[in-house]
Amino acid sequence: MAAITEKTSDRMTVRRVQIEGNRERYAWLFMRLSGVAMLVLAVGHMVIQHVLNSSTNLTLQFVAVQWSSWGWKAYDIFLLWMAIPHGIRGLFNILSDYVHNPGLKRTIGILLTLFVVATVIWATIAISLFDSAMIP
């Protein structure tokens, strides 16, 4: 009965595999990482804007005070970089479940990508150039 009572090694065998990366895989990874980032960023955003401050006095002046610091500008820009691609990729995932025509799927993908790129660039410029001193 030696084989049964014998104590075997406690170390788990770990082996390397080489799997070629594709878009799906990186998109999946991005969804996980941005999800974790937003757990902190988006919840923080919610707490600051709607719990610590009442959302009824969310005015331009309030935003001006916040965006007078580069730290908060960076916070919001980063949140945006995570949220917009995350949301649009999610939308694309749902659409690609039902759109089976490869050409149509590609077109939708390109349009959504253009939308993400344009929105992210535009919003980044808008927030960076925001000058609190201009707000009375």
């Binding site: 082996r15 595999v17 080489q18 799997i19 070629e20 594709n22 799906e24 895989r25 998109a27 999946w28 995932n93 479940d97």
Partner: peptide, 19 residues
């Protein structure tokens, strides 16, 4: 055979379709 199998599963219609 893990490389061959994971190649199949890493494809567009492999594990990434799992939501």
């Amino acid at each position: 055979g893990m490389n061959e199998r994971l190649d199949v599963l890493a494809d567009t219609f492999g594990v990434w379709k799992c939501r």
